[in-house]
């Protein structure tokens, strides 16, 4: 018999979270897309290839690199490590960290490599986030534009990273058990694992995902829309003919 709190966090909440997150994010993007573009507001010079511009921005955060190098350091390192960590989560759970076997490693070597990269990503995120938190509290201009949620969300993400790092560095997490748990969610027969740190970790993650569609975190999706709007030449809605 599972602890009722654990069941709430790991057996019921995930369904709510998935629904809220997917409906919230997709719904928001659909609502954005329905709003017209009454005038051509390209910022010139427009990039010759908007798709490449967006891809380059996504991969390298080029705008920040050229203007505010320190912020680029914090922001880019955080996002790259986040991407690595998320990819690592997928491999870690789907193939139990044995993805490098395809490249010639043994199962145990693959696990060690995964742990290594995961550790780098986890530490990278932590350092970057701590710098961003420091920046938000010490740079006058950044302080001036911050409200409580800007600090709280940083603290929440740091909590996710700390709990994740704890599991990475100080625990031996049974990936197979995690995989089984996730499978149990899909079969609508949730069986949460007993790992307390894991439960805390996914609780924080779900808080973030529940908050995500209703927050500035939507910049992750908005970025594509805004850079497209401001970069694509001749982007304008067909003229509305007055009735």
């Amino acid at each position: 018999m599972t602890n009722p709190l654990a069941f709430l966090v790991a057996g019921i909440l995930p369904y709510v979270t998935a629904l809220v997150f997917v409906v919230g994010v997709v719904g928001t993007m659909m609502r954005w897309n329905r709003v017209r573009v009454p005038l051509r507001i390209t910022v010139t010079p427009a990039p010759s290839n908007v798709v490449a511009d967006i891809a380059y921005e996504l991969l390298f955060f080029k705008t920040l690199f050229r203007s505010t190098r320190a912020l680029w350091g914090g922001g880019w390192v955080f996002h790259v490590c986040l991407a690595l960590a998320l990819i690592g989560h997928v491999f870690g759970i789907a193939v139990l960290a044995h993805q490098f076997v395809a490249l010639g490693a043994s199962a145990s070597q693959s696990e060690q490599l995964s742990a290594f990269f995961g550790g780098i990503a986890g530490l990278g995120m932590l350092v970057a986030l701590l710098y961003l938190l420091y920046r938000r509290t010490s740079v006058r201009a950044v302080q001036a534009i911050s409200d409580a949620s800007d600090y709280l969300v940083l603290l929440l993400v740091i909590s996710i990273v700390l709990t994740g790092n704890y599991m990475r560095f100080f625990m031996q997490v049974d990936l197979a058990e995690i995989r089984d748990y996730l499978g149990s969610l899909f079969t609508l027969n949730p069986a949460p694992p007993a790992n307390a740190m894991f439960l805390v970790h996914i609780f924080f993650v779900q808080l973030l995902l529940l908050y995500f569609p209703y927050s500035k975190l939507m910049h992750s999706c908005g970025m594509f829309f805004t850079r497209w709007l401001m970069g694509k030449r001749d982007l304008v809605s067909p003229r509305e003919v007055a009735a």
Partner: peptide, 8 residues
Amino acid sequence: DSCAKCGA
């Protein structure tokens, strides 16, 4: 909806 408050 899209400002990340980065302050750049």
